[in-house]
Design a protein around this nucleic acid. Structure first.
Lengths: 255, 255
DNA sequence: ACCAGCCTTCCGCTCTGCGGAAGAATGCCC
DNA sequence: GGGCATTCTTCCGCAGAGCGGAAGGCTGGT
């Protein structure tokens, strides 16, 4: 699931410690971290102490650690936040308001092109329930945004992703590489893709690519709507328009 | 401006390297980082290499480094994102839709109670222009959210903040400690505060506290509206209602 | 009282990070 | 082109920083 990027050295250990935190366990005790990282307790004690002193971790009243505000702050300087999210938000909000459904923005993980990382999500209390949050990841093949991103990624990367077994979420998840290739071709040709009940049997998503101006595809945007028989193509124009709007904004910001 | 949290040790240096990135310079070359951190070039070279290998930094096509996607992803496990932002978003959107103005959510920096860090912001293309972004910080005394947070913070911390000179942004910025104390008292008594043209001469903000259920104040929420003579109290009910809604959601999530 | 986890401090060995120096790879100006 | 400035990368020997085993508080459960 989570990659093990660490080779050796203190830096790698520091990153291992930070990597011990997950969406399901955002607060960890000292020995939790030691167990997960497979590092000696004493070592973790020192590292965590230094990280806490630097604001990268925070210590709660119960003694458990969480990711610190300062690290959170620094991380917001990532390009995904700085340029992309900034430019996209107004368009996401418009799309959200028009559709009244969940709207998502995602990028491809360059380290592992088989997965997408969600940058932003706008939800409504009464919208279809949904599993993703900003910062969370999903297999590229199963999601609308993932298919769009894969369609415009390095073909060699895409083939590498298709070479490994594809995870199934529902009976509708497309797991045959050839079927995926067809969807990718469709995405390139039509400028959008529909992922029909691939993640949850009750919802589908309509996605379109976001470019940096008229340059390469840097992100994808989708709307998740209930699979209630309504023709999904209804949503295509709105999604594509929003995606193009973001692309234009990005081009103006960083030519 | 930026604190120097580092003492010694590799961990501290790693954090120094990450801390070299700022909102105005989100992409840095190797020697940029060396200069800013005041570390030997060779050392930075190694650290940055290890950080890049671990996904904490990304290297752009031009050779410059940016904060990496993986770090961004991990940072989203900070409580400010996990619980707070998650719970707040629907209410922020409602408030945003009703007011059609900028809506912001912020927390107090525990390391320096004199500053607030913005967690989220919803803007509109045609709203008053505004300087804050998620992850950015401002002096607590000058902002609506800051005054609210300070009002409910440890009184000793508040006094410590008032002891140092207060930065002036406009002729309306409240810089006299006693005037600030009056505003804080008002915030406690009324459950809201109005920061009138303190940051920019053309806008004012109305802020209210967000509690963890019925517990302590953990965040503050504000709407920024043009200072066009409209009675700012018009906005108070909507802001307070949204703040209470978030508080309730937080209480339900983590009792 | 006893035990089982969790956290913290101590300390000596050694392995690892350190950074000066030197060399490649640009880019710029004359 | 030649020379100069800046940036990035590789190499390597020294020493001090990080390492982690062991031991001792500090809980809370039975």
């Amino acid at each position: 699931m989570s990659t093990r990027p660490a080779r050796s050295g203190v830096t790698a250990r520091v990153l291992d410690v930070l990597g011990a935190f997950t969406a399901r366990t955002p607060a960890l005790s000292l020995s939790d971290i030691a167990r997960r990282t497979d590092l000696p307790l004493t070592t973790v004690h020192r590292l965590v102490g230094e990280l806490t002193a630097g604001g990268a971790l925070d210590r709660g009243d119960d003694g458990r650690y969480t990711i610190g505000l300062r690290l959170w702050e620094i991380a917001h300087l990532a390009p995904a936040s700085t340029g992309l999210r900034e430019a996209a938000m107004p368009f996401l909000e418009d799309l959200h308001e028009v559709t009244r459904h969940n709207v998502q923005l995602a990028v491809l993980d360059s380290a592992d092109p088989g997965e997408v990382v969600y940058v932003e999500r706008l939800s409504t209390r009464d919208a279809v329930s949904i599993v993703t949050r900003p910062g969370s990841r999903m297999p590229a093949c199963a999601t609308g945004v993932g298919l769009v991103l894969l369609a415009h990624a390095d073909p060699a990367d895409a083939e590498r992703v298709l070479a490994r077994p594809l995870r199934r979420f529902t009976p509708h998840t497309v797991c045959d590489p050839d079927d995926v290739r067809a969807l990718l071709a469709q995405a390139r040709a039509g400028g959008f893709v529909i992922s029909d009940r691939q993640v949850e049997p009750v919802s589908l998503s309509v996605a379109a690519p976001v470019r940096s101006g008229d340059g390469p595809v840097v992100a994808a945007l989708s709307v998740v709507v209930p699979a209630d028989g309504t023709n999904p193509h209804t949503w295509v124009p709105a999604v594509r328009a929003a995606a193009r709007g973001i692309s234009r904004a990005l081009g103006a910001a960083r030519p």
